[in-house]
Nucleic acid binder design. Sequence first.
DNA 1: GTGGTCTAGACCACC
DNA 2: GTGGTCTAGACCACT
Lengths: 140, 140, 140, 140
Amino acid sequence: MLIKVDPASSVPVYAQIVSQVKHAVAAGLLRPGEYLPSLRETAIAARVNPNTVAKAYRELETQGVIRTDHGRGSIVTDSGSDATTSYRLAELRRLADQFAVEGYHLGASPAEIAIALQSALNALKPQFDSRDAGKETPHE
Amino acid sequence: MLIKVDPASSVPVYAQIVSQVKHAVAAGLLRPGEYLPSLRETAIAARVNPNTVAKAYRELETQGVIRTDHGRGSIVTDSGSDATTSYRLAELRRLADQFAVEGYHLGASPAEIAIALQSALNALKPQFDSRDAGKETPHE
Amino acid sequence: MLIKVDPASSVPVYAQIVSQVKHAVAAGLLRPGEYLPSLRETAIAARVNPNTVAKAYRELETQGVIRTDHGRGSIVTDSGSDATTSYRLAELRRLADQFAVEGYHLGASPAEIAIALQSALNALKPQFDSRDAGKETPHE
Amino acid sequence: MLIKVDPASSVPVYAQIVSQVKHAVAAGLLRPGEYLPSLRETAIAARVNPNTVAKAYRELETQGVIRTDHGRGSIVTDSGSDATTSYRLAELRRLADQFAVEGYHLGASPAEIAIALQSALNALKPQFDSRDAGKETPHE
DNA sequence: GTGGTCTAGACCACC
DNA sequence: GTGGTCTAGACCACT
């Protein structure tokens, strides 16, 4: 779990950390139940202030990706949001729309856009599989 | 071309305007060559400070979506980015990856994610078609 | 709207501010639509660091008591939580239970406890009335 | 006497234990003179560090709810605070006020709030009765 | 003017 | 050891 940050970027450092942790979880580099590196550890590794990491971890907690036990550390909890289905689908549609529009303005064709997504989904396939197995067929 | 803005959102007002104009262009509500509503008009309609709209228009100009003729107004120029192909594909891949990860954390399945995208692309199909016709068959 | 803070208290300063703003709203000293004093103003008045006030305001925002417009300030929004009824009742019951237990351990009788509550509710009566009027009989 | 703890809660684990013991006493699950489960027992049952339980018991002793006999265990002593009447009433009023304000922000009506309290008091009625009998009619 | 981000560093609470 | 609170002060983004 190695976090790298670009302090010159316009996207806030804490948001970069949030994004990287979410990617790591989705990519299976961090598994549910596993501890995240401690605040200070991450702060040193990423060469940022511990407060900044704290803010990122707080944000991850409100998003339901991790859970923090005071005095012990932060644990990956994620196995899908527990939001209502209707909210999830609406949100998904919103993100899809945004992605499609960005693709359009990049000059890509619908086919190119769809292929790019397939490629991204394939890269995450193992995580989807193991999660969905845990959810839908717990009888194994 | 009606612009609505949520001042309490964490995404800056000017960025909301940028995003809405880009959506309008991608959706064909604003066509290349057409004038945007004037800065002042937009400011009143959206109940925001004219400076904020000015910033949004400036940003759109930087992104190559519109062109501003001093004293006359702003015209839609966009018909796809003129960035290099390799940059476009890399950027597209980055966006796709991000979309896939967000979908994962929302608890959606790969199929649901792909379907959401198809649905969004279909909604924009007319724009893609007319643009691609203009691009690929200039022999007309 | 005067905020006072006891830095020696075991309850965090930011939580003291949250509590005082909520009391002020419930008491009608701050009315929906009104601006809160700015971060810096409050920080100076309460003799605390602006960051501490910022944390309090952020917390009030997540609780739905205020709404913050970037660059403009924070506005009182509260006219009752928009949580689901079942959640509200469960939460209310939890708080009531806690209050009753505390009363027991203070050595108070059930009658004393009920009277103390009536007294507190009476003090807030005008606020309840105006809110409920706005909600239930908007035909006036 | 079964203690359950949520390590991810923002209220400290030791405070959760304190609160639960107080509830148990108020609810009559633990009666004056009775022994609490041993420190170690509780630690194992609640899956927490024995030091944490020790801190909770120390706090309960300070509050006058239990008494610890070295080497023998902890006994419930509580049958109401021995604070002065004026302090008790002031404290009660403070708690009532806080409860009323929280109820207001939850969107509840005064009637709903009062009813929630009655319901909570009724659940504790047997304890109040037996305690008050012991206090007010020691002539038996 | 407003609030937001980040840093540096002290001190505390919890386990 | 862990995370949480608070301060001081710089700098930025938004309106």
